[in-house]
Design a protein around this nucleic acid. Sequence first.
DNA 1: TAATCTATACCGACTAGTTGGTACAGTATG
DNA 2: CATACTGTACCAACTAGTCGGTATAGATTA
Lengths: 208, 208
Amino acid sequence: MPRDGTQTRNRILDSALVLALEKGLAAASLDQVIERAEITKGAFFYHFKSKDELALALVSHVAELDRRNHASIVARVEGLSRDPLQQVLLACSLTADLVAPSEPNPGCLFASYCYQGDLWSEAARKICESNFQEQAAWIEGKLKQAAKLAGRKGKSALPVSPAQLAMMFHSVFEGAFVLARTYNDASLFRKQVLAYRDMLEAVFKPAK
Amino acid sequence: MPRDGTQTRNRILDSALVLALEKGLAAASLDQVIERAEITKGAFFYHFKSKDELALALVSHVAELDRRNHASIVARVEGLSRDPLQQVLLACSLTADLVAPSEPNPGCLFASYCYQGDLWSEAARKICESNFQEQAAWIEGKLKQAAKLAGRKGKSALPVSPAQLAMMFHSVFEGAFVLARTYNDASLFRKQVLAYRDMLEAVFKPAK
DNA sequence: TAATCTATACCGACTAGTTGGTACAGTATG
DNA sequence: CATACTGTACCAACTAGTCGGTATAGATTA
């Protein structure tokens, strides 16, 4: 058997990811991707037919990492508590820690793509959408359970539907990156995700 | 005096804005901007020294529109109610209506820029930051007043500080655009902004 | 009042450099 | 011996930006 090419492929992907978050993949030339990956043009085009193919492979790659990360958070959180609301709150806390406060270019590849028309193919969109959906569905399910439990104690209906609350996770998540970049302060990401968590908690546990 | 050039300049700005929201300004070539504005290269470079200068002028332009829009919302809202919380809630409602549910490319130029390193100069960042700050400061002030009013009635402290709640407006606002693009459904923008509004209301008016 | 001047506004061919992508001969590795 | 590259040379298309020239219209002058 020949030597393993997956290592080189991953180097290309890693290089592209760094550049994509730093300056946007559209603005990053293949030469830059190649230089950073420390390979040659020949090697690049051996693994990818075109820049578009790289772009698509990169979303797929990141989506896969994201799904694994989400699965890991779910597993940890479901081990820590049996209460559905607590599980969601814990998941928020873990998500908040995903970005180091010192990170120079905190951001989400999905958001980066969706503001760069060239890369925002229907295929890429669907990958992002399904990731969002999967995660939102988990939150929504948990919140519905939580609402039922709270309802049994004879409380009023929620001011916002579990579906909208679940989607708001991604609103805040994505918006927090924009905030962090605009204020040039990566710690804002953490603060905003935690603020969302605290608001969620308050909505489900109204003043006694 | 020669004929008026401001019209041409505005045409360029408008053209650039459309393209920036559609595909990102970095990916839009000057030729495209020029073609859409129905002018020539000479006219473009008469008004702008470089693409970078256009980019900066465009954020300035949009920031100015945004500030006027915010001022208009504040004026309307302060005419409609004297209660600070109600004013903020109304402002959210008005903001939610900013994006038509049929809009093809809903988005924010600031977010677009901050994911495209080339355009994200320190000067551009500061323009966006000051717009965010100004608007967040208004919300924060109102929420502090609202908290005081609620406190007089002998209620518990807020689960999230007014400052974080105010910033969350922009988190949700920016994130909602990403959501709308990812789910390919512009109506999500409105829903998310309204969901934020309802959550705010719930936090300040806990179950009686 | 006609000719000239001047400053702004604009035109469009052109250039130097970069881009994504190709071609292909050779080398290393399992 | 097929796979996984390296290295270099190349190309057409496109890029931002330049530059010499022109059109317009008000101000100055003869």
